[in-house]
Simulated scan of single mutants.
Amino acid sequence: MRAIWKGAVSFGLVNVPVKLYSATESHDVSFRQVHAEDGGRIRYQRVCAIDGEEVPYADIAKGYETEDGEMVILTDDDMAQLPSTSSREIAVEKFVPSDQIDPMLFEKSYYLEPEKSGAKPYALLRQALLDADRMAVVTVALRQRTTIAVLRVRDDVIVLQTMMWPDEIRTPDFSIEPGEVKDTEVKMATMLVETLAGDFDPSEFEDDYAAAVETMVKTKIEGGEMKRTPTSTKSSGEVVDLLAALQRSVDAAKSGRRGNEESEESKDESSGTESKKTSAAKATKKAPAKKSAAKKAAAKKSTAKKSTAKKTAAKKAS
């Protein structure tokens, strides 16, 4: 693992130099959006909703939309005036009972590793949390924003878990009507709970969906059901180059068509001459298809000459 943050945990006059590591990673199956016909990746462009033009990154700003739909543009200078911090301190505010923290508040988890000089105070804080069965509520600056978090112990390692702000937890806007529950129904439900009671072991659960996707993909690969897509080239923001490439393609197509037409005309003009040639002349090599205008004129004049002249011309052409 690679440390994403370095700082120190401070409680009272004690500082614990630590490194921060991401404690979780997502193994969710992700798919690409592709063209079903050839497997090509689908690209998206940054297009302005007003003028329909593609917008380069340099011209993109942050906008805050008000409740009535108005848009307030925030410049880099505006963003620089907002409160931010680059503090490297995890400040312990208070120690609270573990059952007072609603799990809904937890957001992301990080491992804390002590620096060599902080190994002893790290062990001291870890043992104090275990003995008191409490969590440490802390404030910490991550990505230049101060957030609240808790410190707790998991498998002898102190874990920092960032928390959502209280106003980010939504209140349900529906009510549940209490129904009449009979005593026999409560007893039956209690029996069901006791039947399924047990200790939580995360290793007993697995992601069947991800495993099924991997199996399906492997089967398709073994069966040769794949799209060998060529390496794509950039197209966005290169309209001029694209038009030039299209123009070159059109010119090449026209040139090829013109060459074919000239070749057909040459064949038609020489068909009469070919019918009058002797078998000895047919055995000789044919002249190249692309003749100069002078050679074509000479070929036409040679048809009016006597047979002896024809044989001489044929020998020269060979």
Rank of each mutant, 00 (worst) to 15 (best):
E214C: 05
L246A: 13
A283C: 01
K291H: 02
S279F: 12
E225N: 10
G223H: 09
K285R: 15
A281E: 04
E264F: 05
A252S: 12
A287H: 07
A253W: 03
I221R: 08
E264I: 09
A253I: 03
P288T: 07
Q247F: 00
G237L: 03
S275H: 08
K290F: 00
E269F: 10
E274W: 03
A252W: 00
S271Y: 07
G259C: 02
S255Q: 09
A283H: 01
K291D: 02
M216A: 15
G259S: 15
K286Q: 11
S270V: 05
Q247Y: 03
A212H: 12
E225T: 02
N260K: 14
E265W: 01
S236G: 13
Q247A: 15
S255H: 08
T233W: 06
K276M: 13
A253H: 10
S235I: 14
G237E: 00
E269L: 14
S270K: 08
K277F: 03
V240H: 03
A289E: 08
T278Q: 01
A244F: 07
S275Q: 10
G272I: 10
E225I: 01
K286P: 04
A211R: 15
K227G: 02
S263D: 10
A280F: 03
I221C: 02
S271A: 15
T219G: 13
K218S: 14
A245D: 13
